[in-house]
C-alpha cells in the first residue's frame, strides 16, 4: 500500500507543479481575503475572537478552492478507471489525497499566517506561534479528511463546484468551532493564554471519527 500511496503522491506533485492550479490560487485568495476583511470591517488591527474568526474563515474558504479541484483531473482524464484497473488497495487513493490536501493546506498557511500577522493582527504573532501551529495542525487534518470525502462525493456530479462547498461547510462547522475557540485566547492583545484542552480534544476526536468514516465509505465512491 505504501508503494501505491507513493506513486499517487508523486503523480499529484507532478500534476500540481505543472499546472499550479491549486496552491497558488489558495494562497493568493487568502491574502486577498485579508485585504477584503480590512475594508469590510474598517479595522486596521484585530485581536482575540475577531482575529481567530477571520483567520479560520479565510483558511476554510481557501481550503474549499483546493477541495473543489482535488479530484477533477482524475474524474475528467480517466484517473479513477486507471486506478481501479490496477491490483491495489483502494484506500491508497484516500490516503494519498488526504496527504495531498494536507500539504496544500500547510503551504497555504505558510503564506497566509505570516500575511495575517503582517496585515491585520494586532498582537505579535511570534509568541502565539508554537501553540498556533498545533491548533492549525489538528484543524488541517480534519479539513483534509472531510475535504477529501466531500470532494470525492461531489466531483462526479453535474454540479460539482456547488456541491463541494454546500456539503463541506456544514460538516466543517465543528472544526471552525474548535479551531477558532482554541485560537482566540492565543491572539488576545492582553494576557494571551494557551488554548483550553477541551477544544484540542474536540478537534482531535472529530478528526478521528471522520477519518474512520472516510476509511469505511471511500471505496463506495470509487466504483461505478
Amino acid at each position: 500500500m505504501s508503494r501505491t500511496v507513493a506513486a499517487l503522491l508523486r503523480k499529484e506533485l507532478l500534476v500540481e507543479l505543472r499546472t499550479l492550479e491549486s496552491v497558488p490560487a489558495m494562497s493568493l485568495f487568502a491574502v486577498t481575503t485579508f485585504v477584503v476583511f480590512h475594508f469590510a470591517l474598517n479595522r486596521s488591527v484585530v485581536d482575540g475572537d475577531l482575529a481567530a474568526g477571520i483567520l479560520w474563515v479565510t483558511l476554510l474558504f481557501a481550503a474549499i478552492l483546493g477541495v473543489n479541484r482535488l479530484f477533477v483531473a482524475d474524474a475528467d482524464q480517466g484517473g479513477f478507471d486507471a486506478f481501479l484497473l490496477a491490483p491495489v488497495d483502494r484506500t491508497a487513493m484516500l490516503v494519498a489525497k488526504v496527504i495531498t490536501l494536507l500539504a496544500y493546506l500547510v503551504v497555504l498557511e505558510l503564506v497566509a499566517v505570516p500575511a495575517f500577522g503582517l496585515l491585520l493582527l494586532g498582537p505579535s504573532i511570534g509568541d502565539a506561534l508554537p501553540d498556533l501551529i498545533g491548533v492549525l495542525a489538528l484543524g488541517d487534518l480534519g479539513v483534509a479528511v472531510i475535504g477529501t470525502l466531500v470532494a470525492a462525493l461531489a466531483v462526479r456530479t453535474r454540479a460539482r463546484d456547488l456541491l463541494g462547498p454546500l456539503l463541506g461547510l456544514p460538516l466543517l462547522v465543528p472544526i471552525v468551532i474548535g479551531g477558532a475557540r482554541a485560537t482566540s485566547p492565543l491572539l488576545a492583545s492582553v494576557h494571551p493564554t494557551a488554548p483550553a484542552a477541551r477544544w484540542l480534544l474536540t478537534l482531535g476526536l472529530y478528526d478521528l471519527v471522520f477519518g474512520l468514516i472516510a476509511y469505511a465509505l471511500f471505496d463506495f465512491l470509487l466504483e461505478d
Binding site: T4, A7, R10, L14, V15, Q77, G78, G79, A82, A86
Partner: peptide, 23 residues
C-alpha cells in the same frame, strides 16, 4: 475511448505512474 492518461504529464511520467501501480 479514453486514454486513461493525465494530459499534464508526459508519456514517460504517465507510464511510470502506471508501472508503479502495477508493480
Amino acid at each position: 475511448h479514453e486514454p486513461l492518461l493525465y494530459r499534464e504529464l508526459t508519456a514517460r511520467e504517465n507510464l511510470r505512474f502506471h508501472a508503479r501501480l502495477h508493480g
